[in-house]
């Protein structure tokens, strides 16, 4: 089984790679984990992870500028229903639109818009650090406890239409989408690769997930 972590030149790829490798190595059938932007390798992957750190528009453009990358993701995730996980900006990219430094279109895979967090003055932006989540019944949260802490760092959030694809939320102080899922596509606003034991559970559950 191959798991592809998409490399489009964004931030902490090494962290994501090592966290997935560490969790996978404990499985009876560990994944072959590759960090890649090669459309062929992506299309032969059994699971796909899109990490992302940075600004929405820049990251979207970086993906579009790698020949065949966006098309191979669409082919795998939309057509072939390969299980997919977006992390942080990788989750926000699933939305229709983002208002981060202008207006940018996203992948449009999960209905929603990405907007700046508005909060009272005493709530610093970015929303940075460990915050607890409330989740609904979903494979991604197997063996997790309600109210567990995860590591967040973001200034924009995924605004879900009618919350229909939201599977977890956090509060800062208003409710913020912490995870989304639609069929074979899931995403977390928090960083499972930086969320210690709780994060490892999420990664483990994604590796075992059969949507």
């Amino acid at each position: 089984m191959n798991l592809a972590i998409i490399n489009f030149g964004s931030g902490n790829l090494h962290s994501v790679h090592k966290a997935f490798e560490s969790v996978s190595s404990d499985l009876s059938n560990p994944y072959n984990i590759i960090v890649t932007n090669d459309p062929k390798e992506i299309q032969s992957a059994d699971k796909i992870v899109l990490p992302g750190v940075g600004a929405f528009g820049d990251c979207k453009n970086a993906i579009l500028n790698i020949e065949g990358l966006h098309a191979s993701l669409e082919a795998s995730v939309i057509k072939n229903k390969v299980p997919f996980m977006g992390i942080c900006l990788g989750m926000q990219l699933l939305a229709d639109l983002s208002y981060e430094f202008g207006t940018h279109s996203g992948f449009g895979w999960i209905p929603g818009e990405v907007r700046r967090i508005t909060s009272p003055k005493e709530y610093k932006i970015p929303h940075m650090g460990w915050n607890e989540i409330t989740f609904s019944d979903h494979k991604l949260f197997d063996n997790c406890e309600q109210g567990s802490d995860f590591y967040f760092v973001h200034s924009f959030y995924f605004q879900n239409q009618k919350n229909e694809h939201s599977i977890a939320t956090t509060k800062y102080p208003d409710q913020i989408t912490a995870a989304v899922c639609k069929e074979n596509i899931c995403g977390t606003q928090f960083h499972p690769e930086k969320s210690h034991i709780n994060g490892k559970k999420i990664i483990h559950n994604f590796l075992e997930w059969k949507p």
């Binding site: 931030g11 902490n12 750190v53 940075g54 600004a55 820049d58 900006l89 970015p126 940075m128 760092v153 973001h154 200034s155």
Partner: peptide, 8 residues
């Protein structure tokens, strides 16, 4: 910040 994101 533009290149790597404010969070970095």
């Amino acid at each position: 910040a533009n290149k790597y994101g404010s969070s970095t």
